[in-house]
């Protein structure tokens, strides 16, 4: 049923859980719909005017509809308690320690994704509204010691595979939504509200970041890229970016 649903390829640790729940929900939906449809079709044919002149005042007897409704409720509660709530809790409560994760900031704006890496020192430099400019969309303060080695990119997010990633998501202007379809990650970026999101990529590849929330006339083209690399490739990429900062 996985392939049948046509979800994008899954490439993160928690994707399997999301997809499994997706399959189970759709299985429940399919059972209910097919069941209803068979009954519906049978009734329409069996009780058409020409075949059944006199309607029955009492209609269907028995309480099996209550049983079905109860079964639907039980199935939904099971989906909720055993799948959706624990998986959600893992998304929002069980953040990995930052020391053992790749930590980046992603700042959305009309119509681009600004990516901010803390650099070798692992600390993000100060950012400020006053420093915003065409060449500094993050408003990063390069005079701040923590900010000297920070790496910034636009619309390109590189991450190492098999290591948890924490994205500190924010927005400069509108509500955007940060979607990584293959990671099964989607999180609204709302100005003024800190939105951390985490996941662990499990496969290398190059895919797209999509904006999922209407953010203006360029919403349709607010596309970025993300690349999941092997640790060595990722380190090499970081080094090459660091070299760019060192030789302005």
């Amino acid at each position: 049923m996985m392939e049948w649903l046509g979800l994008p390829p899954a490439a993160s640790a928690h994707a399997a859980g999301v997809d499994q729940t997706m399959v189970l929900v759709h299985a429940l939906m399919a059972v209910l719909f097919v069941g209803w449809t068979i009954f519906f079709t049978y009734v329409l044919i069996r009780f058409r005017r020409t075949a059944h002149r006199d309607a029955s005042y009492h209609g269907l007897r028995g309480r099996w509809s209550t049983v079905i409704e109860g079964a639907v409720l039980v199935a939904e509660v099971a989906l909720l308690v055993f799948f959706s709530v624990p998986l959600w809790s893992a998304r929002v409560d069980a953040f990995p320690p930052e020391a053992q994760s790749t930590v980046v900031r992603v700042v959305a704006e009309q119509f681009a994704w600004n990516v901010h890496y803390p650099g070798a020192d692992g600390r993000f430099g100060r950012t400020s509204l006053e420093l915003l400019g065409p060449s500094n969309p993050l408003g990063l303060d390069r005079t701040d010691p923590a900010g000297r080695d920070d790496i910034t990119t636009i619309n390109q997010l590189n991450l190492p595979v098999n290591r948890p990633v924490i994205v500190h998501l924010s927005s400069k202007d509108m509500v955007h939504s940060f979607a990584l379809p293959q990671m099964r990650v989607k999180q609204d970026a709302i100005p003024g509200i800190a939105q951390p999101v985490w996941f662990t990529p499990t496969a290398t590849g190059r895919w797209e970041i999509a904006c999922s929330q209407l953010c203006g006339l360029g919403h349709y083209r607010m596309r970025g890229f993300y690349t999941i690399q092997s640790p060595t490739e990722y380190e090499a990429w970081l080094a090459s970016e660091a070299a760019l900062i060192a030789t302005p």
């Binding site: 209803w36 519906f40 009780f47 005017r49 059944h52 002149r53 209609g59 269907l60 409704e69």
Partner: peptide
């Protein structure tokens, strides 16, 4: 379901 079950036994 009540609406669907209402069909049962009718003269449609």
């Amino acid at each position: 379901s009540s609406l669907i079950l209402s069909l049962y036994g009718g003269s449609i």
